[in-house]
Simulated scan of single mutants.
Amino acid sequence: MTNQEYGQFCGLARAAEIVGQRWTLLILRDLSVGPRRYSDLVGGLPGIPTNTLASRLKELEEAGLVMRAAPAGGDRSVVYGLTPRGEELGPALDALSRWGAGGMRTPREGEIVTTASIVSALKVAAGDGVVPKSWNTTYTVQVGEIVAHLVMRAGVITVGPGAAENPDLIIVAGPQIRDVLAGELDAQTAVSTGVVRLEGDPALFERFADTLRVPYSPHVPAGA
């Protein structure tokens, strides 16, 4: 038995052997947003040692969760992406993200947001992603310098990196938008107090705030 093995015939133990090391979950989170070059992963994971990133990618490849490919055309940079086995982790990553967000009210000193973290947060807030089929609304969401888009169309919600093309509403916000997603700050108050700034129909922000939800956990210890 190696140092990374728990010696138990248990699904949780086997999963922990593969994804339980430092940075691994965040690498998988970033790749769940879309394929990434090595340099993209370095840029999206501030603070990760490059030797650690290389090691984790190799381990995930060996475990069958990550694959690499060289794109066609002039850019011959290797691109990393999730395999079908890696994509199976999506619901587990979302569940862990939702659980972690339950204890997040304000950023700790030095904490930042990244494209993948915002996309992940919006995806988790969308829940099962089901909305009335009559809705056809496109949002651009900007938090600091990070931009993502969210689309409610054909009865489903989709989320991705980058601005939407011809968005119906642009939402510019700071970290306190977390209170909106938790349901502790209503849409009108968020706008009137400057927590968010809108470019477009304010009623569409009420739809956004009423639909996306990641509540705070009532069981988080004070100061956690």
Rank of each mutant, 00 (worst) to 15 (best):
L122D: 01
T211L: 08
L89V: 05
R153H: 15
L65P: 00
E87C: 08
A116M: 07
V156E: 12
L185V: 06
D30A: 15
A63M: 02
D40T: 10
D94T: 12
G7D: 05
A224I: 07
A69L: 13
P167E: 08
G90C: 05
V119M: 01
D168E: 10
N136D: 15
C10W: 13
G81I: 04
A15D: 08
I171S: 00
L45W: 03
Y80E: 06
E206W: 05
A16S: 13
Y216Q: 09
A116L: 05
L25Q: 13
A126F: 03
L181C: 06
V159K: 00
P71Q: 08
E59L: 10
G11W: 14
A222M: 11
G102N: 05
S77W: 10
R56A: 01
R207N: 09
G102A: 08
E17L: 06
V143G: 01
A70P: 04
G144F: 04
G102Q: 04
W135K: 00
F208K: 04
V131I: 13
L93C: 05
L82G: 00
S217A: 14
S32N: 13
A209V: 05
F9H: 14
H219A: 12
R37I: 09
A121Q: 12
E87T: 11
A70W: 14
Y80F: 15
K123I: 02
V147L: 03
L60V: 03
G86N: 04
F205E: 03
V66F: 00
G34H: 05
G183Q: 09
L204N: 12
V195F: 01
A148W: 02
V172G: 08
R105S: 08
R85Y: 11
L28V: 08
G129D: 05
G127I: 02
D40F: 12
K133Q: 14
D186G: 03
A164G: 10
L57K: 01
V143K: 03
I27M: 06
E17T: 15
A182K: 07
T52M: 10
I157T: 13
V130P: 02
T158E: 14
W135V: 04
E88Y: 10
Q8R: 12
G103Q: 01
S217I: 05
L31K: 06
R76L: 12
S120I: 07
